[in-house]
Design a protein around this nucleic acid. Structure first.
Lengths: 128, 128
DNA sequence: GAAGTCACTTACCAATAGTGAGTTGCTAAC
DNA sequence: GTTAGCAACTCACTATTGGTAAGTGACTTC
């Protein structure tokens, strides 16, 4: 810190924020990866046993076909979900969680817990 | 389950997905509340010691004034951040984490941990 | 008195999300 | 043998959200 004075100093600013910028950045990236709309619910459904497209659509109430397709592709690209085509007649397409996906869901559990304890807050801001 | 047969049954579908739809829903709401763009980083900065507008802007690298204003207001409404006007000359405005906000950040810690272990995945999909 | 800081607003454009309908390939029912 | 249905998509369109850049007013420092 230099000897330069500012309006804030004059007004009694307590300190310069000692926030670790890089850690903040990492934190942000992780939360935004996992917090992408629908992604967490889809991963959760996968770990809970969903496999086929329609099963996910049923489990993740409110999602559209289009967004489900998009998110499944993204999660596949990121390595959290594996897509398998079973060449029966008619073909079946199965989406299963990878170990990385399951690990991610496990890391989200405390937040799920938090959500159950603070259901009131959720209902106040996300009434869908 | 009825005795109705479907194409899926004919092709050997393993089971109906036993996913708990309500739990999935809760999970989704929580993750999307915390995963909103910039929100997690702002809360993190708050817990790490940021108080004034400029301190948050410095800590949360890349955010614009507009979005920071918006997010701070949202987090205040949701009860995660408290806004305090100190009537000095010039006035200071301080944003501090509430107990609920601190608790939320604590619940996000395992995900932050996960992010540090999987930095490669983050870099692949969020190069900003 | 010119330039700078703090905590915002405003205007505008781009990216993302949501809705609803259509498609292909198959089966099952009348 | 046409009609209806499901599974897993795709397309076109609109609404919502996010990003960029610039401006504002009260105040301070040079």
């Amino acid at each position: 810190m230099t000897s330069r004075t500012t309006a804030a100093d004059a007004a009694g600013s307590p300190y310069e924020a000692p926030v670790d910028e890089q850690e903040c950045q990492e934190f942000r990236q992780t939360m935004e990866l996992a917090g992408r709309r629908w992604s967490a619910a889809i991963l959760y459904a996968a770990v809970a046993g969903a496999r086929r497209f329609v099963e996910y659509r049923r489990a993740v109430r409110g999602i559209s076909d289009r967004l489900l397709t998009l998110r499944l592709r993204e999660l596949e690209q990121q390595g959290f979900i594996a897509r398998e085509v079973v060449p029966t007649m008619p073909v079946q397409i199965l989406y299963s969680p990878t170990p990385a996906g399951a690990e991610l869901v496990a890391a989200m559990q405390p937040l799920g817990e938090w959500g159950r304890r603070h259901r009131d807050v959720l209902e106040r801001r996300l009434p869908d």
